[in-house]
Design a protein around this nucleic acid. Structure first.
Lengths: 138, 138
DNA sequence: TCTTGACTTGGACTGCGTCCATCGTAGGAT
DNA sequence: ATCCTACGATGGACGCAGTCCAAGTCAAGA
């Protein structure tokens, strides 16, 4: 949606064709793409776009809070455009697919202050792991 | 402690000097070292030990369940020798140090069954993020 | 002590991401 | 409508974390 583009313009973004394309790619299916997948999809519409620009734009979107970075394991980071509803991730140990899930409580609430060691704790990421129905059969 | 070495011997490990040194490094302070830090400390005792061997040994310890791999972000993985007591991790966004923490509730309990999508969910890893006292000042 | 295959070595290689000097252009100023 | 300029794009070099592999070494059973 152009909501995202509006918000970015409102934040003083210079609206280049590259940034527009990256934002549109993320606005498509709500899948968790890697930076290279974003680059590949962006390049379908704007063949000359460079990897560096995609990385820069993703980094900016992350620091603006429009997109969430998901580090699934030792592999490439994935980018989650669903940044406005807080959620966690459920990862299949078999095939690696990721689903958004919504726990019943804010996980931050379960860390008592005596377990914070003077840190200013701001976020809690939960990764649930298990087997999806089809990997369970296989 | 030699507990670990005993267990490894019991599992049929060929006990080489390299493996002994890596196990001893992990048995020292309960800090979360990166693979390169483990290599550096191991090399103090056994100067010729190679990075590949350290990686191999760490990987074996992880798959035996003796050590936990902590993927803190885009940075290097850290290795947590405290594998026998369940805990979660608090990571400083500034310097990357990791502390073990113990939340008040089992995070698995907060994922309702209608949010499990037929998965057989077995674990929940929580990563709390924030700034440690010294990074807060800087 | 001998034998053997599990283990180690180090260097090349890959994947993911960052950096940087240079070029291009969006968008305000005139 | 045109000009200016600072912000953004480019792409190639670079760096780090980790893996791979062929050749050499050695722990431990016979």
């Amino acid at each position: 949606m152009s909501d995202l583009l509006e918000r970015l313009r409102g934040r003083g973004w210079r609206m280049t064709s590259q940034r527009r394309v990256v934002a549109q790619v993320l606005d498509g299916d709500h899948v968790h793409l890697t930076a290279d997948e974003v680059h590949a999809r962006a390049a379908e519409r704007l063949p000359e776009i460079s990897r560096a620009t995609v990385y820069n734009t993703l980094g900016e979107l992350v620091s603006l809070g429009e997109v969430i970075e998901v580090a699934t394991d030792g592999r490439a980071k994935r980018y989650d455009p669903n940044a406005h509803r807080p959620h966690q991730h459920l990862v299949c140990s078999g095939c690696g697919t990721v689903r958004d899930v919504h726990p019943a409580r804010d996980p931050l609430a379960d860390l008592p202050s005596e377990e914070r060691f003077g840190f200013t704790v701001s976020t809690a990421e939960v990764t649930y792991r298990g087997l999806c129905p089809s990997c369970l059969l296989a």
